[in-house]
Design a protein around this nucleic acid. Structure first.
Lengths: 110, 110
DNA sequence: ACTAAGAGATATGTAAACAGATCAATTTGA
DNA sequence: TCAAATTGATCTGTTTACATATCTCTTAGT
């Protein structure tokens, strides 16, 4: 299979970014999509779409998924973001996930 | 009007928590609901519902609102959350907002 | 007091997030 | 190799996040 150019995960789309983080966290915990979906109270097809980044979940849904994966959803001032990222990187032991911030992005409408 | 018990903002509901944070950030920037709604690409009635916590926005919508308010949406490991909160508190100069994490919560269905 | 701007609130209509079922494709393990 | 588990993918239907419009009710400003 030839796959030129573009990296496997794009990272200009926040949904893809969120999805790949969720997948990494799930794999890390050795859980199946169905298990996480069940813990989060949503269907597996729905969770799959969220994980692959083909659909935007509601905040409440993302919160529930995050909780199932041992993650927290946080809102911070933009100015603080770099410091938070710095806080996350050094902690490179074994069982943690890279936190990430969603970047400037246009959505649907506009 | 008699209002016994319960504090003005509840903080057991993540939507209320998000809403009051958005409102604080908006007031801090001296913006109207309409201005923020416009910047985020949603209607004012919709933004109002999100701000008062009576409805759950999509993640993409929350990201757009956050951007309009100089905030970032972050997903972090639960274990790191306290450290991040510590990072936010000391920074009590003049123009920053309290970051916050959404807590364990059950949503719709279940 | 009056006025206007901002916020609260509701109604109707549409798009998309959800559920649930059911398929194929892929991965994993015996 | 075969079978089971996991994931990919699509369909039908329901709920709800959205738009737009309109109305009242506060909250300034004069």
């Amino acid at each position: 299979m030839i796959c030129l150019g573009i990296g496997v995960d794009d990272m200009s789309n926040p949904l893809l970014e969120i999805g790949s983080l969720l997948k990494a966290a799930r794999k890390d915990l050795q859980l199946t999509q169905e298990q996480v979906a069940d813990m989060a109270g949503i269907s597996r097809p729905r969770y799959r779409e969220i994980e692959v980044g083909s659909a935007a979940a509601r905040v409440t849904t993302l919160i529930n998924i995050a909780r199932a994966l041992g993650l927290e959803l946080i809102l911070i001032p933009k100015a603080i973001a770099p410091a938070v990222n710095a806080l996350l990187k050094p902690h490179d032991d074994d069982d943690d996930l890279p936190a990430f911030a969603v970047s400037p992005e246009s959505d649907d409408h506009d």
